[in-house]
Design a protein around this nucleic acid. Sequence first.
DNA 1: TCAAAAGTGTTCCTGGTACACCCATGC
DNA 2: GCATGGGTGTACCAGGAACACTTTTGA
Lengths: 229, 229
Amino acid sequence: MPTYKYPRPALTVDCVIFGFDRQSTLKVMLIQRKLTPFQGSWALPGGFVRIDESIEAAALRELQEETGLEKLFLEQLYTFGAVDRDPRERIVTVAYYALINLEEYVVKAASDASDAAWFAIDALPPLAFDHDQILLIALNRLKNKVQYEPIGFELLPRKFTLFQLQKLYETILGHELDKRNFRKKILKMGLLRELNEVQQDVPHRAAKLYEFDEVAYEQLREKGFNFEI
Amino acid sequence: MPTYKYPRPALTVDCVIFGFDRQSTLKVMLIQRKLTPFQGSWALPGGFVRIDESIEAAALRELQEETGLEKLFLEQLYTFGAVDRDPRERIVTVAYYALINLEEYVVKAASDASDAAWFAIDALPPLAFDHDQILLIALNRLKNKVQYEPIGFELLPRKFTLFQLQKLYETILGHELDKRNFRKKILKMGLLRELNEVQQDVPHRAAKLYEFDEVAYEQLREKGFNFEI
DNA sequence: TCAAAAGTGTTCCTGGTACACCCATGC
DNA sequence: GCATGGGTGTACCAGGAACACTTTTGA
């Protein structure tokens, strides 16, 4: 017994998938459209929300179809509902953004050929629909959130160096950071577990590797600790 | 030519409308439901998104129907899409939150009788659907946002005293603030215009009135200023 | 004269910021 | 030996936090 008999907008999800590569560039995954409208253009991966799945489940499903990754950071971004955002008909889309570790992704991606590709954030092609707007908002969210929640680690391999972490912040925030101050601050928080390992195969002195300590973070957070870069 | 022939969720908007009264309590407007399900329960005001209006327009329309106010602060909160959040059928709702100045509202509200009522947020009735969850998230958003954007003023009359402003922050943040430090900080920002007026009809020494200076805020913001309490 | 809020400065301490050099490694 | 990052400590300064008393007004 449908309670509302008027025409309904269609409902989709779109995902802004961020990755951070070895060259310290922030990238986004895009899909080349095979159909009209915007045939041949690049667009955010996405699709319709099925009647029997939650919107978050729909986003996860899309994400898995595209990346093959099971566990990843996923957060709802914003819902876009301008009347004419899709030229075909009324479509409302709930945008999500995801953070993935490119090193793990690359392995899986090699297996199945796909129409997906990674683009550096500062060298994007024109995007279909209002996807440039969505991407901009996602980027802003990332910039803000990375400063007060420890989500940056989601973009790095499990074991990383302090230099990699610093470059990550510099890239996302768009400005340089002082090495000594950065290390002092991040180590003082007590969220990093220093490993008895160093980098391998680097053309310079090998750096110590660290892991993000989620348990320690949870414990500190319960005591009122706030992450802040 | 609909591009997607499968069943679609219905799409609604729900609004969390906050007000701040003369007794320094934070309140929310709720509507008593006339129909099943949850007949007689209190719920957030909301309604279906029409096929030819944007979601924000739908939220504004609902808001105006309920409050009669034209200009108010309105921001998208989050989209709720659990499969069973409505017992009748699949309904996805885009939640917004609004901040209104209760003094202005009360005048209008007196004119048309309504099933709406204001509840202090620490004395809420049980709510229909997942509206308690929505309200909780709205409250968190308000708590956070009020600290780094000057939106608190939306809840006050145009002319207010520093004491009122301080009480507003104390109420929303849930802890007391030091009077001298608060005044020092807020005045130093240069966002308040001191008026040549004082309170009227108060049973104690009358305080100076201030106005929020939006122009000054915009100018400062362009120079990189960040509001912060 | 009492109650309620208005109004006002100083001290201390923490935490941010600026800053430069030697070390280890691979090529 | 050169390039690349690894790794480390100090001094200064600004801004947050703690804190108490006198004044004004109306009831």
